[in-house]
Amino acid sequence: MARRRNPFDIFSDFEEMFEEMLREFEKMGPGEHISGPFFYGFSINQRPGEEPEIREFGNIRPERGRIEIGERKPLVDVFDTDKTVQIVAEMPGIEKEDVELNVEGRELEIKASRGDRKYHEFVELPADVDIDTARASYKNGVLDITLNKVEKNKGRKRINVE
């Protein structure tokens, strides 16, 4: 008998993913094990009048019917203001020298590695940004990136034809 899904239960998908992870762990043989720490989490953000945004983080990801363990996805928040885009990423256990940031178009790539801690994430930027004005700092496990938006043409201007 199929379970009837409650449309107001936003956690049902996560329950299914968690059950799949447990099934994968049960399939492991006696000599098999997973080395290193592993974790999985999600954050839920909802702006007024919009659907909830659910984002995953951690180093365990359900992928096509199996569990993939790899680089950690940091917990990332993106703040879109009038003049800037601010990205805040939680990446404990590394140093600022370990962080590599790359921007191409409207995509920011965050990479960091120190010992067994490896972070990697692509962040979609909500606006075009001026990469020459980018600023980033890392303190107490928190990466803070600020990018100025590229100003769009304002008003109307007559163009003379020569």
Rank of each mutant, 00 (worst) to 15 (best):
residue 96 K to Y: 05
residue 68 E to M: 10
residue 125 L to G: 02
residue 152 K to C: 00
residue 30 P to I: 10
residue 59 N to M: 03
residue 109 E to P: 05
residue 129 V to Y: 01
residue 91 M to T: 06
residue 133 T to V: 06
residue 84 T to Y: 03
residue 79 F to R: 00
residue 83 K to N: 11
residue 97 E to K: 15
residue 77 D to W: 10
residue 7 P to L: 04
residue 38 F to N: 09
residue 74 P to I: 03
residue 54 I to C: 01
residue 89 A to P: 03
residue 34 I to E: 10
residue 11 F to V: 11
residue 50 E to P: 00
residue 34 I to Y: 10
residue 64 R to I: 04
residue 5 R to Y: 11
residue 33 H to K: 15
residue 70 G to D: 01
residue 78 V to L: 10
residue 72 R to P: 00
residue 139 K to Q: 14
residue 107 E to V: 09
residue 136 A to D: 06
residue 23 R to H: 12
residue 99 V to K: 00
residue 85 V to W: 01
residue 9 D to I: 05
residue 80 D to M: 07
residue 46 Q to T: 14
residue 73 K to H: 11
residue 105 G to Y: 02
residue 75 L to S: 04
residue 103 V to G: 02
residue 161 V to M: 13
residue 104 E to M: 08
residue 91 M to D: 04
residue 129 V to F: 02
residue 41 G to F: 08
residue 52 P to Y: 08
residue 104 E to Q: 11
residue 128 D to L: 08
residue 19 E to W: 08
residue 135 R to Q: 12
residue 137 S to I: 03
residue 52 P to S: 09
residue 27 K to M: 14
residue 155 G to R: 06
residue 85 V to K: 06
residue 143 L to P: 03
residue 86 Q to E: 11
residue 41 G to E: 07
residue 148 N to E: 02
residue 77 D to Q: 06
residue 42 F to D: 00
residue 50 E to T: 05
residue 82 D to E: 14
residue 80 D to N: 11
residue 27 K to R: 11
residue 39 F to R: 10
residue 42 F to I: 07
residue 95 E to G: 04
